[in-house]
Computed example of a mutant assay.
Amino acid sequence: MVHIRNIALPDFPLLLAPMEDVSDPPFRAVCKEGGADLMYTEFISSEGLIRAAAKSRQKLDVFDYERPIGIQLFGSDVETMGECARISTEAGPDLIDINYGCPVKQVACRGAGAALLRDIPKMVEMTSAVVKATHLPVTVKTRLGWDDSTKNVEDVAERLQDVGIEALTVHGRTRVQMYKGEADWDLIGRIKNNPRIKIPIFGNGDIDSPQKAVEYKNRYGVDGVMIGRAAIGYPWIFREVKHFNATGELLAPPTVEERVQACRMHFEKSLEWKGPRAGVFEMRRHYAQYFRGLEGARQWRTRLVDTNDPAEIHAIMDEIIAAEPVLVG
Rank of each mutant, 00 (worst) to 15 (best):
F63C: 12
E83Q: 07
G34Y: 07
T41K: 01
A54H: 11
S76T: 12
A53V: 06
E90F: 05
V30E: 00
R110P: 02
G35A: 08
C84D: 13
E42N: 04
D97M: 09
S88H: 09
P26H: 10
A36R: 01
C109R: 14
Y65T: 07
I44D: 02
G111D: 11
T80D: 12
S88V: 08
P26C: 05
D64W: 08
R67H: 09
A85W: 08
G34P: 07
E33M: 12
A36H: 02
F63E: 10
A108L: 05
F74K: 01
D61W: 07
I71W: 10
P26W: 04
I96E: 07
C109N: 15
P68Y: 05
G35W: 07
N99E: 00
T80I: 06
C102P: 03
G48K: 08
I50H: 13
S88Q: 07
C31H: 06
G111Q: 15
G35Y: 08
L95F: 00
D97V: 12
D94T: 13
G48L: 00
G70K: 08
P103G: 03
T89E: 15
F27T: 04
R57A: 06
S45L: 02
E90R: 12
D64Y: 13
D97N: 12
G75C: 10
G48N: 01
N99H: 06
A91H: 04
V62H: 05
V62D: 00
D77P: 04
F43V: 14
G92V: 00
S76L: 08
R28S: 10
M81Y: 03
R28D: 03
A91G: 07
C109A: 13
V78S: 05
M81V: 09
L38A: 07
L60H: 11
P25N: 03
S76E: 12
F63S: 15
S45K: 01
L60V: 06
Y100E: 01
C109Q: 15
P93R: 14
K32W: 04
D94M: 05
K105N: 14
E83P: 02
E42G: 04
R67Y: 06
G75D: 02
D77F: 02
D97Q: 09
G111N: 11
R86I: 05
S46C: 15
Q58I: 03
R57L: 05
Q58Y: 15
A54D: 13
R67D: 00
Q106C: 15
F74H: 07
S46K: 02
C109K: 14
T89D: 06
R86Q: 10
D61R: 15
R86W: 02
R51L: 09
Y40K: 12
